[in-house]
Design a protein around this nucleic acid. Structure first.
Ligand SMILES: [Mn+2]
Ligand SMILES: [Mn+2]
Ligand SMILES: [Mn+2]
Ligand SMILES: [Mn+2]
Lengths: 218, 218
DNA sequence: GTAATAAGTTAGATTAAACTAACTAATTTA
DNA sequence: TAAATTAGTTAGTTTAATCTAACTTATTAC
């Protein structure tokens, strides 16, 4: 079994890895808020456990085994978030920090029960895909709202940043997943978008916000 | 905050402490499967944190603060067991090892939601009392089935040992909490009891088993 | 009431996971 | 391309939590 610390490294590596499956020590260090020498030594340890390919000064890569273990932790995290929202009545802004802890629970049955009670969901409350039991995870082809043009009508399908503050901001604007959004106007100066949705006609959303909203065609 | 290790010591201390609130280093050591010198050094640490009264060679005692923290962990454990049985469909024999992990989750709201969804239960699936939010916990005045006499009729209200094997044994005999039991005969030689309950007329229960079944008047 | 046994402590070692300081390699800038 | 900057490594330290070996105190047995 892997320790809690090891699990956190694996998860961070998977979520940071680029299309080639590569991550840098520096990025990992920043994400985990752990200094680089500590990351280096953990990489050597994970390499000895065949979870990571490690060569000095080269980008880091998860092995297939490492990728699967990481995906399984993310699966547990996202199932938990879904369970907390759907079965326990939490808001989507409250679940991440609880899921960060629950994801480390060692009990296949516990997460199988969650999965079953939820009806085998494919997406978590923030629109992120839940890896399947084989560790397979596919992101749909979303666009950022910030990349849309005036007059486009799209559906809000996922959010990039899942920080409590950002989600509370979305709550305050009555924005939630599945909503139809229409881009009314884009301010050229700062890219602020005026968007209509639900009963709101011209809500102003800053570029910072629009970059974090993932949408798809209606 | 207390570490996972510290929480486990506090919990073990509360569950082992006698009517005077005392525990020995040796008992703690055995319960936690941790050697005595390690226990001694942890006691000094908990003493520095004002969670334990520690004096060399004297019995150990929790402070009021320590007792409350321990009770709160037991509260989280038992609420979890109840939630797993009532809301997630686990058997009473499966929940202890999962609860051992979930009890360390740091989120008051998580356990408040459980409590509310369960309708503020007073007992866990094994008949043990769930400490209230102030850390108060009272055991009802149960007797052991082994102390009953022939012809007595009692209700099975709790079990002492909650090991998976023991609970699976009870399942195999179709024994569960709340059942009415009638003592038909007590074998003088080995104290085996012949008991009738449900559709069973003369089930033989060994002394070892009867000592672990807590009953009350019907 | 002493000797044997059990319980508890002290001292020192080990491991995991973090750190800082100092160094080296790779990349970017001018 | 040489200098400056950034990224990564090595060496050594720290803290929490465990251990063993050796010693001391308390309890039990005779
Ligand atoms: Mn999350
Ligand atoms: Mn999520
Ligand atoms: Mn239990
Ligand atoms: Mn229980």
């Amino acid at each position: 079994m892997n320790s809690l610390a090891e699990e956190n490294y694996l998860k961070a590596m998977l979520s940071l890895s680029n299309d080639k499956g590569e991550v840098n020590v520096n990025e990992l260090s920043k994400r985990l808020e752990i200094k680089m020498p500590t990351v280096t030594s953990m990489m050597k340890k994970l390499s000895a456990k065949k979870l990571v390919y490690y060569q000095s000064y080269k980008p880091l890569r998860l092995t297939e085994k490492g990728r699967k273990e990481a995906a399984f932790i993310i699966r547990k995290h996202r199932l938990t978030e879904m369970f907390l929202v759907e079965k326990m009545g939490f808001g989507w802004e409250e679940v991440h920090s609880i899921a960060e802890q629950v994801e480390h629970i060692q009990s296949a049955e516990f997460f199988e029960k969650m999965d079953k009670l939820l009806g085998y969901p494919k997406l978590d409350p923030h629109g992120s895909p839940i890896p399947d039991k084989n560790g397979k995870m596919v992101w749909k082809q979303y666009r950022k709202l910030s990349e849309c043009e005036a007059d486009e009508v799209v559906k809000l399908s996922a959010v990039i940043n899942t920080s409590k503050d950002f989600l509370k901001f979305l709550n305050s604007r009555h924005l939630s997943l599945g909503m139809k959004l229409k881009v009314k106007f884009i301010e050229q100066f700062d890219q602020t978008m005026l968007v209509s949705y639900g009963k709101y006609d011209k809500e102003a959303l800053s570029h910072i916000v629009c970059e974090r909203l993932l949408v798809e065609k209606v």
